[in-house]
Amino acid sequence: MRIKNILAFTGAAVLSACAFAEPSIAPAANPATGSVLVQAKAGAGHRLTAQEAQGMRGAFRLADGRTLTLSSQRNKLFVDLDGKHEELVPVGDKRFVARDSGTLVAFNQVPYADEVTVSPAD
Rank of each mutant, 00 (worst) to 15 (best):
T49R: 09
H46W: 10
E22S: 07
S35C: 06
G45N: 15
T33A: 11
A28E: 13
V36N: 02
S24M: 13
H46Y: 14
A26G: 11
A28F: 09
Q39A: 10
L37R: 04
A28M: 10
T33N: 12
A42R: 10
A53R: 03
N30W: 08
L48F: 09
G34H: 03
A42N: 12
A21W: 02
G34M: 01
T49Y: 12
A21Q: 06
G34L: 02
Q51Y: 11
A53E: 03
G45V: 06
G43A: 02
A42M: 04
T33S: 14
P31A: 04
A26M: 12
G34S: 02
A29I: 11
A53W: 05
G34R: 00
G55C: 10
V38L: 09
R47I: 11
V38Q: 03
V36D: 04
A44V: 02
I25W: 07
G45A: 13
F20K: 06
K41F: 03
Q54M: 12
P23L: 05
A29M: 09
Q39W: 00
G34T: 05
Q54N: 14
S35D: 11
E22F: 00
A40L: 01
R47S: 12
A50L: 09
P27I: 07
V36Q: 05
V38E: 02
G43V: 02
K41S: 06
K41T: 00
G45L: 07
R47Y: 11
G43W: 00
L37V: 12
Q51L: 14
A44F: 05
T33V: 11
F20Q: 07
F20G: 03
G55Y: 09
A50K: 15
T49Q: 08
Q54Y: 13
E52N: 07
